[in-house]
Structures are given as C-alpha cells and as structure tokens.
C-alpha cells in the first residue's frame, strides 16, 4: 500500500482490546504459570525429574506410538482422501462425514469403545488373541487409540488439494507416456507432499498429548504402558506439583516446536500450491 489508507470501519480498538485481554487472561497468563512454577526447581532437580527412568519409558512410548500411528494415518489418510475424491461408490457421502468422527466423539467414549472392541473377548480382540496378538493393555493398544484419534488429519489436509488438482497435469503425463503409477509417483505425490506432511505433523502433535482415549486401553502399567500425560496426572495426584509441572514444560516445548513446524509446513504448502 503506497500511502496510509484510512479505514472507515469502527471497532478496531474494542475488538482487538477484547481479543488481547481474553487471550491473555485465559491462555497466556495460565500457560506462563507453568514456566514460572518450574523455575522454583533447580536445574538438577528439573533434569532429574524429566529424565527419571519411568519418565524416559513414557517418552519412548508416547513418541514411538504417536509416530507409528501418524505414519499409518499418513498412508491410509492418503488412500481414504484419494478414494473419496476420485471414485464413486455407494454411501460415499456418509463415509466422508464419518471420517470426522474422531473429532466429534469424546475421547473417553472412544477409549472405552476401543478397549471393548480390542480386549481379549472383544469383537476384534477375540480374533487376534488366538494369533498371540494382545492389543488392549499393551503398547499396541496405545497405538490403536492414537491411530483412531489422528485418523481425520491427513484425510482433511490432502482432500482439498486433491480436489483442486488440475486434470491437465495428469493428462499431460499420460500423453507423454507415463503409466498411472509413474504419474502418481512423479507428478501427483510431489504436489501432495506438503499437505501430507502437514497432516502427518498435526496427527503426530495431537497423538503426543492425547490422554482420554489412551488411559482406558493402555492399562497404565509403569515402565510399560504409561504415556507422559498420564505421568503428569500421577504426579499431581501425589501432590508433586513441581514434578508435574516439569514434565508439562517438556511437553509444552515439544508442542511449540511442533506448532512452529506445522505453521512452516502450511506456509510452504500454500506457496508451492498457489502458483499452479
């Protein structure tokens, strides 16, 4: 804008003022409290808390299961988005709506439902038990819950990009002699890549912090099936506020890094998608 333009619309001070006040009171000040509380610990105390063996085991489970679940969702999310955009089949609208179920279904309900389905005498668990696969009350159960929770993310980030895709690109590839797989690998996948990665990061970030659906199916055995958010609750119940806060700081820092990554990915996606 070459010169300062006067905006005739009213309400800027009122709305921005209210936004900043509400944001500060409800989100920023309470979140800052976590960092203030941690500063009452010495560095050694903090380090000792966040690297205790039981805590390290929970990181391994939380990160490992979240990574695995996000990876599964990456492949199946792309598949579901592809099928929903490209193919016609009976009940497609219903399936499309149902994809958002993990967003709408309360996590506690998801937790008890998945536990019931995957326990030894559950609908699916009963089939897996003879094969020696136990899902409920094992790390595998954590993975199942996190896959459920992260399911919509990749579908919903890839779907719009796939819908907006220019048919000419594929026609050009086909007329130049590429087969379907080559076209997908060399033409479509690079275009979908930023949105795939964004969906993956969103699913991973959500899975890291997830609590409600996991606590029911994991069985919460120390060193084996304890996720990091559960350890925070355990410490709180023992009135170890400083310890709980130290773990919260670790998780918050990881979340902020993830948030930054996701923002960068989205910016990259909008840039690489726009000039098409």
């Amino acid at each position: 804008m070459p010169f300062r333009q006067r905006n005739v619309l009213p309400g800027f001070r009122l709305t921005l003022g209210f936004t900043l006040l509400y944001l500060s009171l409800l989100v920023l000040i309470p979140l800052a409290g976590v960092f203030v509380k941690t500063s009452t610990l010495t560095w050694d105390q903090f380090w000792g808390t966040v690297t205790a063996p039981r805590v390290l085991a929970s990181y391994r489970l939380s990160f490992g299961a979240a990574l695995l679940a996000a990876t599964v969702n990456l492949f199946f999310g792309l598949l579901v988005a592809w099928v929903l955009v490209r193919y016609q089949f009976w009940g497609k609208r219903l399936v499309d709506a149902l994809v958002d179920l993990p967003f709408a279904l309360p996590t506690a309900v998801a937790g008890i439902a998945l536990t019931a389905v995957y326990s030894k005498n559950g609908w699916i668990g009963a089939w897996l038990a003879p094969l020696g696969i136990n899902v409920a009350f094992t790390p595998l159960g954590v993975f199942v819950a996190l896959t459920f929770i992260g399911l919509p993310f990749v579908v919903r980030t890839v779907q719009p990009v796939l819908e907006d895709l220019d048919a000419e690109l594929e026609e050009a590839a086909a007329s130049l002699g590429a087969n379907r797989w080559q076209t997908f690998r060399r033409v479509l996948l690079p275009i979908l890549f930023p949105s795939l990665l964004t969906g993956f990061a969103l699913a991973f970030a959500r899975a890291l912090g997830e609590y409600g659906s996991v606590v029911f199916i994991s069985g919460n055995m120390p060193m084996k099936t304890e996720i990091t958010p559960l350890l925070i609750i355990t410490k709180l119940e023992q009135y170890d506020y400083a310890g709980a806060t130290a773990l919260a700081v670790v998780m918050l820092v990881v979340s902020f890094v993830m948030l930054l990554t996701i923002n960068l990915l989205q910016w990259w996606g909008s840039r690489s998608h726009a000039p098409a």
Binding site: V27, L31, G209, P229, I232, L236, A248, L259
Partner: peptide, 22 residues
C-alpha cells in the same frame, strides 16, 4: 496473534487442566 489463538489446540488436555491447578 493468529498462532497464539490456536495455542490451546496444541496443548495436551492434561496440561490445559494443570495450568488452572497451578
């Protein structure tokens, strides 16, 4: 500001409760 508004989405629910306990 837009990023800060999204902040509660990236915070674990457990931490969302913890901050008010603190």
């Amino acid at each position: 500001l837009i990023t800060l508004i999204d902040l509660p989405f990236s915070v674990s629910p457990v931490i969302s409760g913890l901050i008010f306990v603190l």
